[in-house]
């Protein structure tokens, strides 16, 4: 049976939403395992303090090796294109030079938890994908066709990540990802 949703403890600072930390790793051994089978829920939280209790016990993205992803999604949304909340959505994809993943991941999730994107319910979650030659940060939102929202998200991403102006940022709808069965 699913665990009851977490609640903020006494004296803790509640978040606007509950969130879940997920982890996925493409294992060398079992290449046939589906994306869904590789996706593991690490834990959920409802307050700032509960977030830090999880975050401080999880290896930093920059210290990971191999083909690994961290996902931080609102509770009730699975980090999958097919999830109800994602099926009409898309994501901003930011390609990072090696060495930037930990700082950018932390800045992005703190902005998401603090509701800094100012787009109401639109944000679904964030992903950091550790790969061999570069790392990829992405932020998922519900409505890919809403240009005002996706532009506002882009501008906030630029402000909070403070990356060089020539950083590659692109927007990809999950419909396109499903079509070519590729995330990036």
């Amino acid at each position: 049976p699913p665990r009851p949703p977490p609640k903020p403890g006494p004296g803790e600072n509640p978040l606007q939403y509950n969130y879940g930390f997920w982890y996925s790793r493409k294992s060398q051994g079992n290449k046939s395992a589906s994306y869904d089978q590789n996706l593991k829920l690490i834990g959920t939280f409802a307050s700032v303090e509960q977030f830090w209790r999880h975050y401080c016990h999880i290896a930093r993205p920059g210290d990971l090796t191999g083909h690994t992803d961290y996902h931080l999604f609102k509770e009730g949304i699975r980090p999958m294109w097919e999830d109800n909340a994602n099926k009409n959505g898309g994501k901003w994809i930011i390609r990072l030079k090696k060495g930037l993943a930990s700082r950018c991941w932390e800045n992005l999730i703190l902005a998401m938890l603090g509701e800094q994107f100012m787009v109401g319910e639109e944000i679904c979650g964030a992903v950091i994908s550790i790969r061999y030659s570069e790392d990829i940060l992405s932020l998922w939102n519900r409505t890919a066709s809403d240009g005002v929202t996706t532009s506002r998200i882009r501008d906030t991403l630029k402000r909070i990540l403070n990356l060089p102006p020539n950083t590659i940022m692109e927007y990809k709808t999950h419909g396109d990802s499903l079509k070519d069965n590729s995330s990036f």
């Binding site: 403890g9 004296g11 803790e12 600072n13 509640p14 978040l15 606007q16 700032v48 303090e49 830090w52 209790r53 401080c56 800045n107 703190l110 902005a111 938890l113 603090g114 509701e115 800094q116 909070i160």
Partner: peptide
């Protein structure tokens, strides 16, 4: 209802709270 906003600095301060250990 009103939304719950937190600035980055406030979230970082909470990191050292005993409740976050």
């Amino acid at each position: 209802g009103s939304r719950i906003f937190y600035e980055r600095n406030f979230l970082m301060q909470c990191r050292s709270s005993p409740l976050a250990k």
